[in-house]
Design a protein around this nucleic acid. Structure first.
Lengths: 152, 152
DNA sequence: CATTTTGACTTTCCCTGACTATAATAAGCT
DNA sequence: AGCTTATTATAGTCAGGGAAAGTCAAAATG
């Protein structure tokens, strides 16, 4: 398992353990704990705690600086609608994963639907589509599934 | 016996031995073990662990990369596997409907899943794909969904 | 001639380090 | 004391190197 995964897990755990739904961390301390350069913490945050994943990140530099990562919560319906709106005409695989995990962890979709969505928009499923066109197709499929999810 | 068969055997064995029904492998390591070039592993996977064979393949590149091969648990005679194998490389919308209705009436999928499958392979979802190519994409998506849905 | 094997090239992801930006605190200066 | 400047302590950005896995088509094999 890559170090970035471990760091992500650590942050996730810190948020879970917290009362208020956020973790306040020292970038330098975290880097030291995992024996990586500080900028790797930024990498982990950018790749795993983006708004698409359902987090907001605040920070402050200088003495007493910190990074605060908060899990955001929407009402179920607005989250689905927000997600649909966030998907433009193009959607890369990573972002699709992030959106779907977010919907899943908010319990808006169950494990089966999560699997269905990921299967439908995976590169495996889109194999016949030219790589350069996949993100466009992915976006269309993704939005269409979510729209049908809304109209129960 | 060809080396590819030995590699396939090895992978099969690894899956059997595993608790969870999947094997997580390092492509480079496997290639080295059998003294072949890494891309031969891809060849083995493509020819022997395809969806039609009942396997799900996931992977990750970069540091800490891996290939994960999951055997979908259900008898090869099941309606799902039959459906997957009936799809082939092309699937028109009417046939997709028919297959899905069949799965629904056999109570293998529920109403919501039925709806979402159809949403995923509808012409609306595939709008960015040129009409002449849609059936091919539809087939790939359809098979992938079915396979993943039943590998719970 | 179908299948297997190979290798050159591409893509993705992780990790690092040099450089930049900002905030708090300490040190000087009037 | 109050203002300005230097120092120190953080965090942010970006480009690049390296470690995997993916793709594709040509060559070898049976």
């Amino acid at each position: 398992m890559a170090t970035s995964d471990l760091i992500a897990q650590f942050i996730l755990n810190a948020i879970e353990e917290s009362e208020n739904g956020f973790a306040e961390l020292r970038r330098s301390g975290l880097a030291e704990r995992f024996s990586v350069v500080p900028s790797q913490i930024n990498y982990v945050i950018q790749t795993r705690f983006s708004p698409e994943h359902g987090y907001i990140v605040e920070s402050r530099r200088g003495g007493g600086g910190y990074i605060k990562i908060t899990r955001v919560r929407h009402s179920p319906r607005s989250l689905v609608m927000n997600t649909i709106n966030s998907v433009g005409t193009s959607l890369d695989l990573r972002t699709a994963y992030a959106f779907t995990e977010n919907l899943y962890s908010e319990e808006i979709i169950g494990p089966q639907i999560r699997k269905l969505i990921l299967a439908a928009v995976s590169d495996n499923a889109l194999r016949p589509v030219e790589p350069s066109g996949r993100d466009t197709v992915r976006a269309a499929i993704y939005k269409n599934i979510l729209l049908n999810l809304l109209g129960e």
